[in-house]
Design a protein around this nucleic acid. Structure first.
Lengths: 109, 109
DNA sequence: CCGACTATCTGTAGAATGACACTTAGTCAC
DNA sequence: GTGACTAAGTGTCATTCTACAGATAGTCGG
């Protein structure tokens, strides 16, 4: 699982894959889900989202799960995509573990 | 402190700022520090680093702390930069809090 | 002088992003 | 039929990133 070489994941890639790791979704649903769960004001523009979705499909991070009612194309995360999110989350956890204490302490020094 | 509009931070921006939040550093030192602390194989190319550093200086995230011995330009994080890292780390913590359990559970479903 | 290491920085090419506007089409309420 | 909402896309432009290579220069050991 050649997950390295793609890390670190772009923030929006991670958000998209994180949502898809929870449940398969279609493009519009992803826009809404990402908007909701990131209070920080992270937005997905459709122009970008569908491009990213195609790129992820080509990279084998996600796959089409057939269509829901004929109108919505549902995207599902693959094992490779899942491994990628896991690796990125692990990386971020290590980063947070290092940066959090340094941030608190660095201010007084 | 208009920190929003810049979030989410690009992964390498965050790494750079996180190091600088710990202690002021010069360019070459940043390359080495980021290389060491991210086992995930995240590298900083000098070509990118110095450009990113200039951009961050223009945005007021970092500032020059004079030079160390005349040869090395030392960069220090500003209050604005510090606020930015804090905000980004907080965003990542929320993200991890949501994504971690979903990732563990989403596999069985 | 030569080589290795430290250090800053430019040039370039290809890919991707972000933000804007726009099209097409089904559903639902009125 | 009109308007609002859901849904999937395309087109474009400026900016940016990444990765490659190379220029320039000081220090230290041999």
């Amino acid at each position: 699982m050649d997950v390295h070489g793609h890390l670190p994941l772009a923030p929006r890639d991670l958000l998209i894959l994180a949502v898809l790791a929870e449940r398969p979704s279609h493009g519009y649903g992803l826009i809404k889900a990402v908007e909701e769960r990131s209070e920080s004001g992270v937005l997905l523009d459709p122009a970008n989202l569908y491009r990213v979705l195609r790129r992820m499909r080509e990279l084998g991070w996600i796959e089409e799960a057939g269509d829901d009612e004929g109108r919505r194309r549902v995207h599902r995360i693959t094992d490779r995509g899942h491994a990628l999110v896991s690796a990125e989350l692990a990386r971020l956890e290590r980063l947070l573990g290092q940066a959090r204490p340094a941030l608190a302490q660095g201010r007084s020094g």
